[in-house]
């Protein structure tokens, strides 16, 4: 690769980084979808306040991943210790539930209300399940309008469980995107200029190698042949499989060598 090409690549990379939020490029579309689904479901359930809490690690701690409503900005990022509050219970028990104020001063999970200044009087909480795992909790708080708020009904719990299924799938996609994001961040921060230089050198030596060129040509031939139709693709596959089988039976790495 010429210096000119390298510089061109660097310039393009820099431009790309300047125009996108590199840290959130993978996770942002997923969190935006979760937020939209939260808004839609909250409206359907007659409330303005909803949040998604996700499990952090194996200890059962919960973190607010997304929220809509008056104190949404304060909630996102906040954590709840293992087994605390209604969300903590729903995570551990897998049991959906609705809790409403009976008109006294007892708290739900005081720390969250204290931090946000919000007054929680009615909660609907359902577990977020993906396959066999409970990945978090979906909560709806209070009702649209002024208190006293009507309690959430069993039908609304069932309705929330349907939204929870969709949100749980998105939470799983978020976790996967976050994993890739974290891995790339880690590999980038671990690399220094020397690593990049050695990587560039390895790549150019690979491209110069006759062996590599031959392999690439073979791959191109295979692609061209298999693009001609199902029968060609099938024939290609069978031929290669037969050759490999013959090689295995001869128990030699190369059946053409003497």
């Amino acid at each position: 690769m010429s210096d000119e090409n390298t510089n061109d690549l660097n310039t393009r990379l820099r431009r790309l980084i300047q125009t996108i939020d590199i840290a959130n490029v993978l996770t942002e579309p997923v969190t935006a979808s979760i937020r939209r689904l939260l808004e839609t479901s909250a409206a359907a359930l007659g409330t303005d306040e909803a949040s998604v809490l996700i499990r952090e690690g194996d200890g059962g701690e919960l973190r607010f991943l997304s929220a809509v409503g008056k104190v949404a900005d304060q909630l996102v990022g906040m954590t709840i210790p293992s087994g605390k509050g209604i969300a903590g219970f729903v995570l551990m028990s897998g049991q959906p539930m609705a809790v409403s104020d009976a008109g006294d001063d007892a708290t739900f999970y005081a720390e969250v209300d204290q931090a946000t200044g919000f007054s929680t009087q009615s909660i609907l909480a359902v577990p977020l399940r993906f396959h066999d795992e409970i990945v978090g909790v979906l909560e709806y708080i209070n009702r649209t309008g002024e208190p006293p708020f009507a309690p959430f009904t069993p039908e609304e719990i069932d309705q929330a469980a349907v939204y929870a299924d969709a949100i749980a799938a998105l939470v799983n996609a978020y976790e996967a995107a976050k994993l890739v994001r974290d891995l790339s961040t880690r590999s980038l921060s671990a690399s220094n200029e020397d690593d990049l230089v050695s990587m560039r050198e390895w790549l150019s030596s690979l491209r110069r190698s006759a062996d590599h060129t031959e392999r690439m040509e073979l791959a191109v031939l295979l692609r061209e042949l298999s693009d001609r139709g199902d029968a060609e693709r099938h024939l290609c596959k069978e031929l290669l499989k037969t050759m490999l089988k013959y090689s295995d039976e001869k128990n030699e790495s190369s059946f053409l060598s003497y």
């Binding site: 539930m97 409403s100 009976a102 006294d104 001063d105 007892a106 708290t107 309690p151 959430f152 069993p154």
Partner: peptide
């Protein structure tokens, strides 16, 4: 198991809905 009034934290009470009640 629907709107069951029972004991809650801080010597309070709540109305609760769920199989676990």
């Amino acid at each position: 198991g629907v709107n069951v009034r029972t004991a809650w934290l801080d010597k309070g009470h709540r109305n609760l809905t769920g199989n676990s009640f």
